[in-house]
Amino acid sequence: MRPEVSVPVTLDDALLRQPLQVDGIDVTGAPPEWATWLSDIGFVPGERVMLLHRAAMGGDPLVARIGLSTFALRRAEAACIQVSVPAGA
């Protein structure tokens, strides 16, 4: 039996309207200041998040709700946000 390999899922690849939680921020290949900015606006581990809308033609921008706030994010920014489905969702 082969062990399961868990591949990180990022917010840009998430299903619409699926309850998720933030697992972390990984800005590898992106401007390093994005880590601080994303944390400052609420994308911190354990916080609940939901992808609400993806624009046509490449999906840029994306609309995400975190807490009581709603943000438009570029696809590249959303790709830095690692998410998972919380237990019991």
Rank of each mutant, 00 (worst) to 15 (best):
T28C: 07
M57G: 04
L68E: 15
D13R: 11
A35K: 13
V83W: 01
M57T: 08
A55R: 05
R65W: 10
E33V: 14
E47W: 03
L16F: 07
W34A: 08
E47M: 02
L38Q: 05
I81C: 00
I25F: 00
A72V: 12
W34L: 15
S69L: 14
L52V: 12
S69K: 15
A72E: 14
F43V: 09
G59Q: 01
M1A: 11
G46D: 03
A76R: 05
M1I: 02
D12Y: 04
P19V: 09
A89T: 09
P45E: 05
P32E: 14
P19S: 10
I66H: 05
D60E: 12
Q18W: 05
V5G: 01
F43N: 01
G67T: 11
S69Q: 15
S6F: 09
V5F: 07
V49F: 01
V27I: 02
H53D: 14
S84C: 13
T28A: 12
R48Q: 11
I81K: 01
Q82F: 06
A30Y: 09
L15N: 05
E47T: 08
V27R: 03
A76C: 09
G58C: 04
L62Y: 04
R2C: 05
L20D: 05
L62R: 00
V7K: 04
L11N: 07
V5W: 06
V27C: 08
G24F: 01
A35V: 09
A76I: 01
P3M: 03
L38R: 07
I25M: 00
F43W: 09
R74H: 02
G46W: 00
S39A: 15
P61R: 04
P31W: 06
P32A: 15
D13F: 03
R54E: 04
A87V: 04
V5E: 10
E33I: 13
W34S: 11
G58T: 05
G29A: 13
A87I: 06
D60F: 08
Q82G: 14
A30H: 13
E4C: 07
R17Q: 15
A56M: 10
G29H: 11
R65V: 01
V27E: 07
R54G: 00
P3T: 09
L38K: 12
L68G: 07
R75K: 15
V7E: 08
A35H: 12
G42L: 06
V9M: 15
M1Q: 09
M50I: 13
